[in-house]
Write a protein that binds this DNA or RNA. Structure first.
Length: 716
RNA sequence: GGGCGAUUAGCUCAGCUGGCUAGAGCGUCUCGUUUACACCGAGAAGGUCGUAGGUUCGAGUCCUACAUCGCCCACCA
């Protein structure tokens, strides 16, 4: 008989248990052709920082699903990985460099990439350790990284395929430009924040007579690039002005007054200045009316040559100067306080400048159509219906996706330009130009949006387009589990690219968990200093307590409020389980007990039948809850059963029957029923609290398997 | 502007398809413990389930308004 210590020491036990699982290769599923596998692709954490509490959430939830299915005898695969996280990592690493007093230009592109790669690999190593500490039973033999050569090749293949199908194009379009990061961004990477500013009413004199038209704007500095003034065609006040010309102040340029239905007559004066190069709506209007486009703000965030005397000023300086100059000419009618949405960069927070720029785009409409169909036809199900609506709304209004980034960190765009003007798109660097045979080829300097590669993750991890054994068996995957905050960034793109590349939706179900918030419901962030570091929680309270606390009081789609209190509550539960097991071990040792594993062979007392029946009920409820992804309900059921029914009632009962009788058979019966319920409770608890349950299993006598992780799930 | 969600005990939250005499953790209070567990046990107090209507034999649960808070999307310059 193994000795059971008085206290459970999570730190020691967890390390040993994880080793036991890994050494026995329990995380690697056996491919059984006649059995449908259960597959989850782990959302690859950004490889630029240690894991945060949000990662602990998805690891816990996904591990529960995987362990549950594994115990049910289904080949279960959970693929771990890491994401290079283009812009995020580049921003982080550039900050590192800054601490050393360097910039990326000191290193040069190649060296910068190499250094960042090293930095990333170090982080990945740390993250792996953290994932293991959380108890994740993922298959480390299949771990992937988005920038490794095989994955990159798949990414380039997809690019080429899209290009050949005419779904990728390069063109001059208005895009979101972050001058601070020095790159174009997709619409999703732009965050709108409230800004208190002014609405300036500026007089634009008409060419004829002594009249003028007043336009209202929040961005006077863009007026230098105005090429029209627009009014609503139905606006009576302005009707006779349509077609007339105004003289653009400061620039003395003649520009037309046009009519456009997009103009809201209620806003300002009903007349709007049109700056096609620096506002998306203006750009659209300019296309319809064939207006001139004048770039007055450059990629450095400063006024361009076209801005005349304002050239070289920052937008802020230019605004000030322009307002002064207008004031001098008495062209400002009035100034109002105004609140509007300022577009800012999601990464660095600086204002976004809409600019016309040559970038690579994906035509998303043709990809969105089948992606919408797949959900409509139920090929992909959102476990929470409300997300379907949100998904449809976004998909139906999708715009082309700008995928080129002016960054050094990421997949370099697989396009080469020849001096003869030829553009070559390929998965590998071409030796020569197929047209003129020149070998003087220049690769496009830009890199791809991170989400372009992660959008292919569910099949690229299996080395698609190669028809690998893994791809054939494990794709499409079963459940996509991730945070709802990346529904558009990631989930939607995986669906679009998955269907486009492989012809099949990449997963069958989408389960979205909430964001972790603190007790005041604030988002956790380093700047607010309200983060919970999963590693220190594990160190102090054990991984099981953390896992249980995260699942316990949170339902899907809703935010998860994490607090020390909840973790401690679960730590007590861990202790309770430990002591129940200790009690069992003590009585069988001290009373010469013989365990009968088959409870059917026992002469059952009323209380035996009661607890066996209660177990059955609990088991059923847990099953039902897990099938519906109601993890918190399953956890609560188990908590209630174990604490109150098994410990408070049954154990107290067993004490009575063991200590107050001389009848050995009676003692054996009581202990056998306890053994049965204890052992089977451990099985049900295992997906939630893998370490403590496995540790006890290893100490229990008469068990069937080498480890609890591969035990059979109790039958319904 | 459009959409989504929340509102249940002092605090933080569960309550899945309508049956609840409304639950848990923490906190508070009382009692208990030489025989698993002070990281303890037993128990108690504490809620007209945001407001007002409606559907129903029956509503925290469904419907309709309203209020407050929060979030997401959107080119109102």
């Amino acid at each position: 008989m193994k000795e059971i210590p008085k206290r459970y020491n999570p730190q020691e036990a967890e390390a040993n248990i994880y080793k036991l699982w890994q050494e026995n290769k329990f995380f690697t599923p056996e491919i059984k052709e006649n059995k449908k596998p259960f597959v989850i692709i782990m959302p690859p954490p950004n490889a630029n920082a240690p894991l945060h509490i949000g990662s602990a959430v998805f690891i816990t939830i996904e591990d529960i699903m995987i362990r549950y299915n594994r115990m049910k005898g289904i080949p279960s695969l959970w693929v771990p990985g890491a994401d290079h996280a283009g812009i995020a990592t580049q921003v982080v690493y550039e900050k590192e460099l800054k601490k050393q007093g360097k910039t990326k230009f000191d290193l040069g592109r190649e060296k910068f990439f190499k250094k960042t790669y090293e930095f990333t690999l170090k982080n990945i190593e740390k993250q792996e350790d953290q994932i293991k500490k959380l108890g994740a039973s993922c298959d480390w033999t299949r771990k992937r990284f988005t920038l490794e050569p095989d994955i990159s090749e798949s990414v380039y293949y997809t690019f080429k395929k899209l290009y050949n199908d005419g779904l990728i194009y390069r063109g001059d379009r208005i895009i979101n430009w972050c001058a601070s990061c020095g790159t174009a961004l997709s619409d999703l990477e732009v965050e709108h924040i409230d800004e208190k500013t002014n609405l300036w009413y500026i007089k634009y004199p008409l060419k004829e007579k002594n009249k003028s038209i007043v336009v209202a704007t929040t961005r006077p500095e863009t007026m230098l690039g105005d090429t029209a003034v627009a009014v609503n065609p139905k606006d009576e006040r302005c009707k006779d002005l349509i077609g007339k010309k105004v003289i653009l102040p400061l620039m003395n340029r003649e520009i037309p007054i046009i009519a456009d239905k997009n103009i809201d007559p209620e806003f300002g004066t009903g007349a709007v200045k049109i700056t096609p190069a620096h506002a998306e709506i203006d750009y659209k209007i300019s296309k319809e009316h064939d207006l001139q486009i004048i770039n007055v703000i450059g990629e450095d965030g400063k006024m361009t040559e076209q801005a005349g005397i304002y050239k070289g000023l920052t937008t802020k300086e230019a605004r000030k100067k322009i307002l002064e100059d207008l004031e001098k000419q008495n062209l400002i009618e009035k100034t109002e306080d105004y609140q509007h949405n300022l577009a800012t960069c999601e990464r660095c927070g600086s204002p976004i400048e809409p600019l016309i720029s040559k970038q690579w785009f994906i035509k998303t409409k043709p990809l969105a159509k089948p992606a919408i169909e797949a959900v409509k036809k139920g090929k992909i199900k959102f476990t929470l219906k409300k997300f379907e609506k949100i998904y449809y709304h976004w998909m139906n209004n999708i715009e082309d996706w700008c995928i080129s980034r002016q960054l050094w960190w990421g997949h370099r765009i697989p396009v080469w330009y020849c001096e003869c003007g030829e553009t070559i798109v390929d998965t590998k660097e071409p030796k020569e130009c197929p047209k003129c045979k020149s070998s003087k080829l220049k690769q496009d300097p830009d890199t791809l949006d991170t989400w372009f590669s992660s959008g292919q993750w569910p099949f690229n991890v299996f080395n698609w387009p190669k028809e690998t054994k893994d791809f054939k068996y494990f794709y499409p995957t079963t459940v996509m589990e991730t945070g709802w905050d990346i529904l558009f960034f990631w989930v939607a793109r995986m669906i679009m690219l998955g269907i486009y590349c492989t012809g099949k939706p990449p997963f069958k179900e989408v389960y979205l968990h909430g964001l972790v918030r603190d007790k005041q419901k604030r988002k956790m962030s380093k700047s607010k200093n309200n983060t919970i570091d999963p590693l220190s929680v594990i160190k102090n309270h054990g991984a099981d307590s953390l896992r249980m606390a995260l699942v316990f009081s949170s339902s899907q789609g809703r935010d998860i409020i994490a607090s020390e209190e909840k973790i401690i509550a679960q730590k007590r539960f861990v202790n309770k389980i430990w002591n129940a097991a200790r009690f069992f071990m003590q009585i069988i040792e001290g009373n010469n007990i013989k365990i009968e594993k088959d409870v059917k062979k026992l002469k059952l007392e009323k209380e035996d039948e009661w607890i066996l029946n209660e177990f059955k009920k609990t088991s059923k409820k847990v099953d039902q809850a897990l099938e519906k992804y109601n993890f918190h309900i399953a956890a609560e059921e188990l908590y209630d059963f174990f604490w109150y029914k098994l410990c408070a009632k049954t154990i107290e009962n067993v004490k009575d029957r063991i200590y107050n009788t001389e009848d050995q058979k009676e003692k054996n019966n009581a202990a056998s029923v306890l053994y049965f319920t204890l052992l089977n409770s451990l099985k049900l608890l295992h997906p939630f609290m893998p370490f403590i349950t496995e540790e006890i299993y290893q100490l229990l006598p008469e068990t069937n398997k080498k480890a609890l992780i591969i035990e059979e799930w109790p039958e319904k």
